[in-house]
């Protein structure tokens, strides 16, 4: 078990999401940074999608009730285990009773907004519709279908048993797979169904000008501030299926990007979709971040996903190699 010691809000149990439930109108949920969650699980020898704790408000602390191998990824929060500093994106062994404390996210060459606590064996909450992620809209999954509170005790799954003694850390993917445009972080976008129904001048500004993530942004969606998108003619659409990453344009012309907790249907016109391979970049951008949209196409989106998978495969290979080496000692 691990016990939540913080009153800090907005932490939840997440995995890679609830993929097969769209047909029942149940959205994806899952980690805002699936790459960080996967990396933490690789460090521990878990399944890639083992459930973890996503934290987004700091300081945050937990107590380990038993000896636990864990990994911390995502935002660099100057984490301490019983007062001893931990490396960012590393795995460590906690003794029974040890307290892990994360401070506010630090500035660095890459800055994240969300941190992930993965444990050997994963957080063992029941699967609901094929996933352990917390779905806030429907109050299902995760820990009682809600955000975590002080005093909650989370059950841990059985660890794989294999010794993974050597201490290792990872170069954060924000550095290993950087994406910038004109000095600002960027995400790649595929044009969506109503793309051609906005004025060329406003589309030109959409690609050229930066957007800022406003405080009205959370796991459900990011409301952006930037150049407005103007429809050639007013659009009224019927509700249709949407997925995380879809960039909707409400009447005020300021885009909304649907994020993990986004609803599975909507009626606003869509100018584009942030590609799956880049959603983690957006998911880690703190409120106030200025970033750019970069145009891509279907092949570009698939190539980006391949690049991400290749990087993960290399991380997995090296982590297994070093772990096997320490086990052989």
């Amino acid at each position: 078990m691990i016990e939540i010691l913080s009153r800090a809000a907005l932490a939840s149990v997440q995995d890679l999401g609830r993929f097969d439930a769209f047909r029942w109108g149940v959205g994806l949920s899952g980690a805002m940074d699936p790459l960080a969650l996967t990396c933490g699980n690789i460090l521990l020898g878990n399944e890639d999608g083992a459930a973890a704790v996503e934290m987004q408000v700091f300081p945050f602390s937990v107590r380990f009730e038993a000896d636990t191998l864990f990994a911390l990824t995502g935002a660099d929060c100057a984490a301490m285990l019983d007062g001893v500093p931990l490396l960012p994106w590393s795995r460590a062994q906690a003794k029974a009773g040890a307290v892990l404390r994360l401070d506010h996210a630090r500035d660095g060459r890459w800055r994240g907004a969300r941190a992930y606590l993965c444990v050997a064996g994963g957080i063992d909450v029941p699967e609901v519709l094929g996933s352990r992620s917390t779905q806030l809209r429907g109050a299902i999954g995760g820990f009682d279908g809600r955000m975590l509170r002080e005093g909650d005790r989370l059950p841990l799954g059985r660890a794989a048993g294999e010794s993974r003694g050597t201490e290792i850390a990872l170069v954060p993917p924000g550095l290993a797979l950087p994406l910038e445009a004109d000095g600002l972080p960027a995400v790649r976008v595929l044009p969506a169904a109503e793309y051609g129904r906005f004025t060329p001048a406003s589309l030109d500004a959409f690609w050229r000008e930066p957007f800022r993530i406003t405080p009205q942004s959370d796991r459900y969606g990011f409301r952006l501030a930037g150049p407005g998108l103007e429809p050639v003619a007013p659009m009224e659409l019927r509700s249709h299926g949407i997925v995380p990453g879809v960039i909707q344009v409400p009447h005020n012309g300021q885009p909304i990007v649907q994020m993990c907790e986004g609803q599975p249907s909507g009626g606003y016109p869509k100018v584009g979709t942030v590609i799956e391979a880049d959603l983690w970049r957006l998911g880690q951008m703190p409120i106030g971040t200025r970033f750019r949209f970069l145009a891509t196409d279907w092949d570009g989106a698939l190539a980006a996903l391949d690049e991400r998978q290749a990087w993960l495969a290399e991380v997995r290979r090296l982590a297994d190699l070093l772990s096997a080496r320490s086990a052989a000692r």
């Binding site: 290792i168 990087w311 090296l318």
Partner: peptide, 16 residues
């Protein structure tokens, strides 16, 4: 004693 002084990097991996 025990403090991390440096890292050894192999690809994406860092060893303290």
């Amino acid at each position: 004693a025990g403090q991390v002084l440096a890292l050894l990097q192999v690809g994406a991996l860092l060893q303290p």
